[in-house]
Design a protein around this nucleic acid. Sequence first.
DNA 1: TTTGCTGCAAACCTTTTGCACCTAT
DNA 2: ATAGGTGCAAAAGGTTTGCAGCAAA
Lengths: 137, 137
Amino acid sequence: MGKTVARHTRQKDAMLQGLRQIEGFVSAQELHRRLAEQGLDIGLATVYRQLRSLETTGAVDTIRLNGQQMFRICEDNGHHHHLICEHCGRTVEIEPPDEQWLRSVAQAHHFTMTSHTLEVFGLCPQCQQLLAAAAGK
Amino acid sequence: MGKTVARHTRQKDAMLQGLRQIEGFVSAQELHRRLAEQGLDIGLATVYRQLRSLETTGAVDTIRLNGQQMFRICEDNGHHHHLICEHCGRTVEIEPPDEQWLRSVAQAHHFTMTSHTLEVFGLCPQCQQLLAAAAGK
DNA sequence: TTTGCTGCAAACCTTTTGCACCTAT
DNA sequence: ATAGGTGCAAAAGGTTTGCAGCAAA
């Protein structure tokens, strides 16, 4: 089985470029919309396919929020966790918890650990102000 | 604004009874299927509506898995975390990480922490055997 | 009697897929 | 020329919602 070679296309470039402009997570739908706004008309199916492939190679990080999958370009290719602003979506990477600890917890129950997720939700400084102002009004 | 009073119905009873029979998380769809198997014919929409209401009151715990929301009755009404078998859905509650640590991480970035999730996925002992046998065959 | 709850079916949304065409290699 | 990528539209989930009828209180 000869390994198939990935091709370089206008669409792939556009997606990476688009992803790099965004700080925080975006849904496939919104990424597609934003690209369209910039005149980059790419099929929605392609956005999904490409995103899935990027996820497989670890080039993007994903989380689930409100029933949809959100993507974010992942510069350093390691597993990590996030502190996510519930209001604007801005994210900050945080230190992973002690993986050894997680593994031992799993082992205590005779489970094999395959993966884990840790997400911390909150409000970033800007949104705190924004919301405080709106409420105080 | 007078507070509306919740009514007691056959369907609600059935749902709670059904949920209590299940160890681990179930999807709305599967809960509906299981209830039907027991002769408890409840509209799928009702299952969803009821589940959403239980979630709001904190009577059930939920996580997302494979694009669907999974529910589990939550006896003790506290926040906790899970070790989940990816194959059969069986779950075990695990010790929460140090909340103080999470809070300090958030504060370091000037975020206010509102919530967090931690889920550890793996295979339970039974499913490990099952899958090993299937693969070895 | 009042009005919350239910069932049904249609509507919604996100994501996936089949297929013919296009295009990088 | 070969075969991976793309676009479109249809399909496939899962979940929500409008509405008329049912039934708890």
